[in-house]
Design a protein around this nucleic acid. Structure first.
Lengths: 144, 144
DNA sequence: ATCGACTCTGTCGCAGCTACAGGTTCAAGA
DNA sequence: TCTTGAACCTGTAGCTGCGACAGAGTCGAT
């Protein structure tokens, strides 16, 4: 039996450290509405609890997975309201996954273009370079 | 037979269209010093020439290849002063290539994590989702 | 009471542009 | 020559997702 009293309070710095983010990130997430404004001490300092820590962890995890803030906002409200199905979450994830795959493809095209260009170069100490020639020429559709 | 006189002048809009960028981009590149301030008409309108168009194309091509502005600035000054060797340009390209490859690897890790998560999901119309469970759990080192 | 560490607010800065407001100029047609 | 209307001018704000800073106030241990 635990008495969760008001002494179980975290400062902003402690919350940030425990959740694993920068202290200013906490304030930022509050500002944009991902974290609710917490209780305050008499002097005005924020007072967080375990639940805030869990929520912040969730947010940070979603960010690590690359979900943009707006999608994360949807995720959070669905979870908050217990109003989601696995199908909906999976669909959001697939949409996100598609954009990740698109970015990968773009970067891979870029990578191939750059490596071809670098290979064509002699790399010598001469004032004449295939890469520069390329860039002085016409644009292709390889860039990103 | 064409007389290339001072009448061969391009407005900002025309330059942008021919080089293939947004009109405001031209002004931006002038502001940050990639394009020199051009001559002006009596009324104050910018007057560009063929040389400006070539320079802008070079810049845009380098940007398509993902070179950040600061590296591009180096490239431009080297080309402007005819003070570069193929080896130097190649080295810059390889550095850039490395960062592109790093980004690809990060995104691929992310892609794998997301697809594994999505596969674990039933996708059904149930209020219980493996992806959400995952995000409520501990962070891993897969995210980016 | 004092002291250092922490926190408070508001605001700027980053990259690389894009968009807008409110005004002026240009070029073509009547 | 006059009149449109498109294009241009400047300065500034906005986008994403925070991080950094200044100058002031608070907290907790001594």
């Amino acid at each position: 039996m635990t008495f969760t009293t008001s002494r179980d309070v975290l400062t902003r710095g402690t919350l940030a450290k425990r959740a694993g983010c920068h202290i200013e990130t906490v304030r930022y997430y509050e500002k944009i509405g991902l974290l609710a404004p917490p209780a305050r001490s008499v002097g005005g300092h924020r007072q967080y609890r375990e639940a805030d820590q869990r929520r912040l962890r969730f947010i940070l995890r979603a960010r690590e997975l690359g979900f943009p803030i707006e999608e994360l906002r949807s995720l959070l409200s669905m979870v908050d309201e217990h109003a989601y199905t696995c199908g909906e979450i999976q669909a959001m994830t697939m949409t996100h996954l598609t954009s990740v795959r698109d970015r990968i493809r773009d970067l891979q095209r870029l990578e191939r273009t750059l490596s071809v260009m670098a290979e064509r170069c002699s790399g010598d100490q001469v004032p004449d370079c295939a890469i520069i020639e390329e860039m002085l020429g016409e644009p292709t559709r390889d860039g990103g």
